[in-house]
Amino acid sequence: MEVDENRESDSMTRRDAAWMIARALATPAGLALASGWPGAAQNAGGGAMRHSNAPPERDRWKDYRPKFFTIAQFGALRMFTQVLIPTDETPGAREAHVPEFIDFVLNAAAEYAPEMQPQWQKAADYLDSVGFAGMNAANQEALVAEMAAPETDPNKTHAGFPFYRLMKEMTVRAYYTSRAGLVENLGYQGYAYLTEFPGCNHPEHHKV
Protein backbone atom coordinates (compact mmCIF):
# COMPACT_ATOMS: atom_id res chain seq x y z
CA MET A 1 0.00 0.00 0.00
CA GLU A 2 2.93 2.30 -0.51
CA VAL A 3 2.30 5.48 -2.45
CA ASP A 4 4.28 8.34 -3.81
CA GLU A 5 6.75 6.41 -5.81
CA ASN A 6 7.91 9.72 -7.22
CA ARG A 7 8.58 11.14 -3.86
CA GLU A 8 12.29 10.80 -3.97
CA SER A 9 12.74 12.69 -7.21
CA ASP A 10 10.19 15.26 -6.08
CA SER A 11 11.87 15.81 -2.85
CA MET A 12 15.50 15.83 -3.83
CA THR A 13 16.17 19.50 -4.14
CA ARG A 14 19.44 20.64 -5.55
CA ARG A 15 20.43 22.12 -2.26
CA ASP A 16 19.75 18.87 -0.54
CA ALA A 17 21.70 16.82 -3.03
CA ALA A 18 24.68 19.14 -2.80
CA TRP A 19 24.55 18.95 0.95
CA MET A 20 24.49 15.18 0.94
CA ILE A 21 27.42 14.94 -1.42
CA ALA A 22 29.40 17.30 0.75
CA ARG A 23 28.61 15.18 3.78
CA ALA A 24 29.53 11.97 2.04
CA LEU A 25 32.89 13.31 0.97
CA ALA A 26 33.63 14.62 4.40
CA THR A 27 33.00 11.30 6.10
CA PRO A 28 34.36 8.46 4.05
CA ALA A 29 34.73 6.19 7.05
CA GLY A 30 31.12 6.80 8.07
CA LEU A 31 30.02 5.78 4.63
CA ALA A 32 32.13 2.70 4.71
CA LEU A 33 30.56 1.81 8.01
CA ALA A 34 27.00 2.19 6.80
CA SER A 35 27.60 0.15 3.70
CA GLY A 36 29.96 -2.23 5.46
CA TRP A 37 27.13 -3.74 7.42
CA PRO A 38 26.00 -6.64 5.28
CA GLY A 39 22.61 -6.35 3.75
CA ALA A 40 21.50 -3.20 5.57
CA ALA A 41 20.28 -1.49 2.47
CA GLN A 42 18.46 -4.47 1.03
CA ASN A 43 16.88 -5.55 4.28
CA ALA A 44 15.85 -2.23 5.72
CA GLY A 45 12.28 -2.71 4.54
CA GLY A 46 9.45 -0.17 4.74
CA GLY A 47 11.04 1.94 2.04
CA ALA A 48 13.74 3.08 4.41
CA MET A 49 16.51 3.13 1.88
CA ARG A 50 14.38 4.07 -1.06
CA HIS A 51 13.75 7.46 0.41
CA SER A 52 16.12 8.74 2.97
CA ASN A 53 17.74 12.08 3.42
CA ALA A 54 19.63 10.61 6.34
CA PRO A 55 23.29 11.53 6.20
CA PRO A 56 25.87 8.92 7.04
CA GLU A 57 26.97 8.55 10.60
CA ARG A 58 29.89 10.71 11.64
CA ASP A 59 33.17 8.96 12.20
CA ARG A 60 33.04 9.54 15.93
CA TRP A 61 33.30 5.96 17.15
CA LYS A 62 36.33 4.81 15.22
CA ASP A 63 39.06 3.76 17.66
CA TYR A 64 36.80 4.72 20.57
CA ARG A 65 38.38 3.90 23.94
CA PRO A 66 36.03 3.61 26.91
CA LYS A 67 36.45 6.37 29.45
CA PHE A 68 33.90 5.51 32.08
CA PHE A 69 34.06 1.70 32.05
CA THR A 70 37.20 -0.39 32.28
CA ILE A 71 38.05 -2.43 29.20
CA ALA A 72 36.69 -5.55 30.93
CA GLN A 73 33.43 -3.84 31.99
CA PHE A 74 33.04 -2.41 28.51
CA GLY A 75 33.41 -5.88 27.02
CA ALA A 76 30.61 -7.19 29.22
CA LEU A 77 28.40 -4.21 28.33
CA ARG A 78 29.01 -4.93 24.66
CA MET A 79 27.80 -8.48 25.04
CA PHE A 80 24.83 -7.51 27.19
CA THR A 81 23.57 -4.81 24.82
CA GLN A 82 24.01 -7.20 21.93
CA VAL A 83 21.65 -9.66 23.63
CA LEU A 84 19.15 -6.83 24.13
CA ILE A 85 19.35 -5.58 20.53
CA PRO A 86 20.93 -8.34 18.47
CA THR A 87 22.14 -8.09 14.93
CA ASP A 88 19.62 -10.01 12.83
CA GLU A 89 17.93 -9.00 9.60
CA THR A 90 18.51 -5.42 10.69
CA PRO A 91 21.50 -3.87 12.47
CA GLY A 92 21.91 -4.39 16.20
CA ALA A 93 23.46 -2.63 19.16
CA ARG A 94 26.93 -3.26 17.76
CA GLU A 95 26.33 -1.52 14.43
CA ALA A 96 24.55 1.29 16.28
CA HIS A 97 27.58 1.76 18.58
CA VAL A 98 25.33 1.49 21.59
CA PRO A 99 28.07 0.55 24.09
CA GLU A 100 30.32 3.35 22.92
CA PHE A 101 27.45 5.82 23.19
CA ILE A 102 26.58 4.67 26.71
CA ASP A 103 30.17 5.01 27.86
CA PHE A 104 30.39 8.47 26.28
CA VAL A 105 27.18 9.62 27.98
CA LEU A 106 28.18 8.31 31.40
CA ASN A 107 31.55 9.93 31.21
CA ALA A 108 29.93 13.24 30.29
CA ALA A 109 27.47 12.86 33.18
CA ALA A 110 30.22 13.88 35.60
CA GLU A 111 29.50 17.56 35.01
CA TYR A 112 25.74 17.98 35.55
CA ALA A 113 24.45 14.55 36.58
CA PRO A 114 27.12 12.72 38.57
CA GLU A 115 24.33 10.87 40.40
CA MET A 116 23.92 8.73 37.27
CA GLN A 117 27.33 7.15 37.57
CA PRO A 118 27.14 4.97 40.73
CA GLN A 119 24.15 2.94 39.50
CA TRP A 120 26.02 2.12 36.32
CA GLN A 121 29.06 1.11 38.34
CA LYS A 122 26.79 -1.23 40.26
CA ALA A 123 25.41 -2.65 37.03
CA ALA A 124 28.95 -3.27 35.78
CA ASP A 125 29.88 -4.86 39.13
CA TYR A 126 26.82 -7.06 38.89
CA LEU A 127 27.73 -8.36 35.44
CA ASP A 128 31.24 -8.97 36.76
CA SER A 129 29.98 -10.79 39.86
CA VAL A 130 27.97 -13.27 37.80
CA GLY A 131 30.83 -13.75 35.34
CA PHE A 132 28.69 -12.59 32.41
CA ALA A 133 31.57 -11.90 30.03
CA GLY A 134 32.97 -15.38 30.46
CA MET A 135 29.71 -17.23 29.74
CA ASN A 136 28.91 -18.87 26.46
CA ALA A 137 26.15 -17.34 24.39
CA ALA A 138 23.46 -19.75 25.60
CA ASN A 139 24.21 -19.04 29.25
CA GLN A 140 24.24 -15.30 28.62
CA GLU A 141 20.83 -15.59 26.96
CA ALA A 142 19.52 -17.63 29.89
CA LEU A 143 20.76 -15.13 32.46
CA VAL A 144 19.28 -12.14 30.62
CA ALA A 145 15.97 -14.03 30.43
CA GLU A 146 15.99 -14.48 34.21
CA MET A 147 17.01 -10.87 34.85
CA ALA A 148 14.20 -9.67 32.56
CA ALA A 149 11.48 -11.98 33.87
CA PRO A 150 9.88 -9.48 36.32
CA GLU A 151 9.17 -7.20 33.35
CA THR A 152 6.48 -9.58 32.10
CA ASP A 153 5.66 -11.49 35.29
CA PRO A 154 5.05 -9.32 38.36
CA ASN A 155 5.32 -12.37 40.65
CA LYS A 156 8.93 -12.87 39.75
CA THR A 157 11.89 -11.05 41.26
CA HIS A 158 15.54 -11.02 40.34
CA ALA A 159 18.52 -9.24 41.86
CA GLY A 160 19.65 -8.23 38.38
CA PHE A 161 16.29 -6.78 37.29
CA PRO A 162 17.07 -3.13 38.13
CA PHE A 163 20.31 -3.42 36.18
CA TYR A 164 18.51 -5.00 33.25
CA ARG A 165 16.04 -2.08 33.20
CA LEU A 166 18.82 0.47 33.52
CA MET A 167 20.80 -0.98 30.66
CA LYS A 168 17.76 -1.65 28.51
CA GLU A 169 16.44 1.87 28.86
CA MET A 170 19.63 3.49 27.70
CA THR A 171 20.23 0.83 25.04
CA VAL A 172 16.79 1.47 23.55
CA ARG A 173 17.35 5.22 23.58
CA ALA A 174 20.77 4.88 22.04
CA TYR A 175 19.68 2.40 19.40
CA TYR A 176 16.58 4.12 18.07
CA THR A 177 18.37 7.47 17.86
CA SER A 178 21.30 5.99 15.95
CA ARG A 179 21.39 5.79 12.20
CA ALA A 180 21.26 2.02 12.37
CA GLY A 181 18.13 2.03 14.54
CA LEU A 182 16.24 5.06 13.27
CA VAL A 183 16.98 4.85 9.57
CA GLU A 184 18.06 1.30 8.79
CA ASN A 185 15.77 -0.51 11.19
CA LEU A 186 12.71 1.75 11.61
CA GLY A 187 12.89 3.42 8.24
CA TYR A 188 11.99 6.85 9.60
CA GLN A 189 10.86 9.06 6.72
CA GLY A 190 11.12 12.50 8.28
CA TYR A 191 13.42 15.41 7.50
CA ALA A 192 12.19 15.14 3.94
CA TYR A 193 12.03 17.74 1.20
CA LEU A 194 8.61 17.28 -0.35
CA THR A 195 6.31 19.44 -2.42
CA GLU A 196 3.13 17.92 -0.97
CA PHE A 197 2.41 16.34 2.37
CA PRO A 198 1.83 12.66 1.71
CA GLY A 199 -1.62 12.38 3.27
CA CYS A 200 -3.54 9.21 3.95
CA ASN A 201 -4.79 7.52 0.78
CA HIS A 202 -6.38 4.46 2.35
CA PRO A 203 -10.17 4.32 1.90
CA GLU A 204 -10.36 1.89 4.84
CA HIS A 205 -9.02 4.55 7.21
CA HIS A 206 -12.06 6.74 6.60
CA LYS A 207 -14.29 4.30 8.47
CA VAL A 208 -14.10 3.09 12.04
Partner: peptide, 19 residues
Amino acid sequence: HRWPYELPFHGQGQPGLLR
Protein backbone atom coordinates in the same frame (compact mmCIF):
# COMPACT_ATOMS: atom_id res chain seq x y z
CA HIS B 1 17.61 19.46 9.92
CA ARG B 2 19.89 17.58 12.21
CA TRP B 3 19.48 13.89 12.79
CA PRO B 4 19.74 12.70 16.37
CA TYR B 5 22.92 10.75 15.67
CA GLU B 6 24.56 13.92 14.36
CA LEU B 7 24.36 15.40 17.85
CA PRO B 8 26.80 14.36 20.58
CA PHE B 9 24.02 13.09 22.84
CA HIS B 10 21.57 11.95 20.14
CA GLY B 11 19.16 14.77 20.98
CA GLN B 12 18.97 14.15 24.71
CA GLY B 13 21.64 16.63 25.71
CA GLN B 14 24.52 16.20 28.09
CA PRO B 15 23.07 14.41 31.14
CA GLY B 16 21.52 16.92 33.54
CA LEU B 17 22.18 19.97 31.38
CA LEU B 18 18.67 20.42 30.03
CA ARG B 19 17.01 19.51 33.30
